[in-house]
């Protein structure tokens, strides 16, 4: 009777050992989703000329913003070993780069844009 119990215990233990060895096999993970990026404002840059004595004189001022955008994102990961996994991600979104022109004595304020695909 003691022999039978020992065999049963061994049988119960085998699956647990097999499970511990599984991470060594290749495994692929795929996921995706939506993303949103907030606006990014760049430092303002003026269109300067030089006046008598070398002092700058501003013809107009400019400031640029990469506007907020929403997009899609996909990611794929491949586990090569228990400690090494390779991942690759791609995100696609459209936004606008906008430059605001102000303080031009000869023209009204203007906002100049260009679509940007990221």
């Amino acid at each position: 009777m003691r022999v039978k119990k020992a065999i049963l215990l061994a049988a119960l233990l085998v699956p647990a050992v097999a499970s511990a060895q599984q991470p060594r096999e290749a495994r692929v993970e795929v996921d995706g989703g939506l993303h949103w990026s907030g606006p990014i404002t760049f430092a303002g840059v003026n269109a300067n000329e030089i006046s008598f004595g070398g002092a700058p004189r501003t013809v107009f001022e400019s400031s640029s913003t990469l506007e907020a955008s929403a997009g899609v994102e996909a990611r794929i990961g491949v586990r090569l070993t228990s400690i090494l996994q390779v991942e690759s991600a791609i995100a696609l979104g459209r936004t606008h780069l906008a430059t605001h022109i102000t303080a031009d004595n000869e023209a009204a304020d203007a906002t100049i844009t260009e679509p940007v695909t990221q």
Partner: peptide, 17 residues
């Protein structure tokens, strides 16, 4: 003001910019 040395009008006597 000028934004190029090739602007046709000089700024004035004494200016070294």
């Amino acid at each position: 003001s000028t934004g190029a040395i090739m602007f046709p009008i000089a700024l004035g006597p004494g200016d070294i910019s």
